[in-house]
Design a protein around this nucleic acid. Structure first.
Lengths: 348, 348
DNA sequence: TTGTAGGCGTTATCAC
DNA sequence: GTGATAACGCCTACAA
């Protein structure tokens, strides 16, 4: 069986084109030692003569030898790779979540392979198809339904970001929208507003938790509510879509005195549109955001918002993964929730 | 030799704790077929009786079997993993570059594992230590010197972001700061400015290309230049550090009428500090940024800046990696450079 | 349609 | 100190 190996094409320089990568065997041959000895040299084990070690390393250098991560992974367990699926890296919210994930992963010695799905359901599935083969677990944002995810996740642990228990059967880490809106609407009411609109995010299917929480709170305060107070932002959660939606809402509800934006980007868009229409913020129209992007401090007037600890969200997700991997029960309820915090600035 | 395998602990449910992961062999045993047949079923090959296939898949499901990516990678070549090293995900510049990298990588069917070094040289090296083992190539931002990088990259291809040929011996993708500053300073001069300051980024060691280009252009126009016109932003390329630095510069050079910020974040900080000091922007003081973050359109006044196609930067980097891997010469000179584009808004 | 044999590149174990 | 041998888990080729 040794003979076989001898026969394999000897990694010649003669053949051009991207030639076969050197293996431990090639190095051993060139250095005139056994594969095991090469391994010892390369991995800095003791039990080896300094002279041979040097000779082996020289051979390795010559052949540009690098151990195969696959062969290594096969034999040494312990390399953990997590997949992170993000809908839109261009939205400042997600890099911050990602930073939290990366930070927690680094602490555990995990690697993270990142996918940007650009809010595309198809790409989401492709990401899962790959990650289910290449990663040990996945955390991320998905708009596909549980059932679809299940079909593509191939049995590896998955943690959904910003999904409540009632919205998924997978482990999840969520945002307590209800608690947030309670603070937010209370603030608007306290400052005298009775007619509050909302610029919702563009969710497919059922309305999301933010809208539901908004409706619940507005009702609780006995304020007018129906569909006429809400406009959906189509075309992404961006400033631009916020502007467009705000124009519509202003047309539908000229009597509105305050508006809640699905996120800060949309809220900023709302401010811009309102001012372009000649409405002063916050005097003629108060604007409340959701997310707490640092961007909000920079615009004028500075954005009042429900701030979320996005890094923590990411770290929590990694923690959930760790539990899943350990066979433990994932955190649930309040432990898997991040609480928004009202930050009052100038826009409301 | 078969017997050996038979003897291994039979993946019992009895033992608690995280039990050994099922292998193809376990599935074969449970389904009463050969490993090969399992492979056929799992990989959806033809040549298999639908009935056996179903039986095998059921067994696989039962055992929660998932093929080892290591064993697979060992035998099927072609999985490419690139490492992406970013200094600060919180700075909106980098997610956009990352998006470009991810996009190009996805098109090639590569995976990307991401590291955030938080501008820490030590973490940079750690990232390289891991990636040199786990990735097939690396692209990223590094402040460590070539020599240090070489020591940690372990021979795999590396592409440096925003380094010119004279700054590194590795393949690189840069920004043509000179071309950018030429437009920028010309604009300031055209609008009547003669006393222009700069808020430089906090580079260790030699001044970076942006400062050099700034100095060259200012000199070319015969304007006053010396160290008194430049302040270094310590503590990161952030709005806050820009504010602090601007205060200092304003103290040193109260006669200054325009300022160039190392990047948009710093420039925004400059605007804020200036206004706090009672200076109107752009009337009392013009501010020019560098990067072209979308953030710049949102602040007031909107930031005039040297816009960079950051996605393209990322895509280019991936292209460089591809060349390196193919054994081709990396792109150099203008082909590996991204050209800044002056975008005139209200701040200058 | 199914099974056998062998190799992918590495490390651990145990001799020498 | 060094080497032979046997895994690691999977897939391809070939045989039955």
């Amino acid at each position: 069986m040794w003979a076989d190996k001898q026969q394999r094409e000897p990694l010649s320089d003669a053949s051009d084109g991207p030639r076969r990568r050197a293996t431990i065997h090639d190095v051993a041959q060139l250095a005139g030692v056994s594969r095991q000895t090469v391994s010892r040299a390369v991995n800095d084990k003791g039990e080896i003569d300094p002279a041979t070690k040097e000779r082996v390393l020289e051979a390795a250098r010559l052949l540009d030898y690098r151990p195969s991560r696959f062969a290594r992974g096969l034999v040494r367990k312990g390399t953990v790779t997590a997949g992170l699926v993000i809908p839109d890296l261009m939205n400042p919210f997600f890099p911050e979540v990602a930073a939290g994930v990366l930070e927690a992963a680094e602490q555990r010695g995990w690697q993270v392979v990142v996918w940007d799905t650009r809010t595309d359901g198809v790409r989401e599935r492709e990401a899962l198809d790959v990650l289910s083969h290449q990663a040990d677990a996945v955390v991320g944002y998905f708009k596909n339904e549980d059932e679809v995810l299940a079909r593509h996740i191939g049995g590896i642990p998955i943690v959904l970001l910003e999904r409540g228990p009632q919205q998924t059967r997978f482990a999840a880490v969520g945002i307590d929208a209800a608690a947030g809106l309670e603070q937010g609407i209370a603030h608007l009411v306290r400052t005298g507003h009775r007619r509050i609109g909302m610029l919702d995010g563009d969710r497919i299917g059922a309305p999301g938790p933010r809208r539901e929480a908004f409706l619940a709170e507005v009702r609780r305060h006995g304020l007018p509510v129906d569909e006429s107070w809400i406009v959906l932002c189509s075309g992404g959660h961006s400033v631009a879509s916020g502007e467009t939606a705000m124009e519509q809402l202003l047309d539908k509800r000229p009597d509105m005195t305050a508006v809640f934006g699905f996120n800060d980007l949309i809220a900023v868009g709302a401010m811009r549109a309102a001012r372009r229409r000649g409405r002063q913020v916050p005097d003629d129209l108060a604007v409340l955001g959701f997310d707490g992007l640092s961007l909000g401090e920079l615009v004028e007037p500075a954005l009042t918002t429900l701030h979320i600890d996005k890094r923590r969200l990411g770290r929590l997700a990694v923690e959930q993964v760790a539990r899943l991997r350990a066979g433990e029960e994932p955190l649930s309820g309040a432990h898997a929730w991040v609480q928004p915090q009202l930050v009052v600035r100038d826009s409301a």
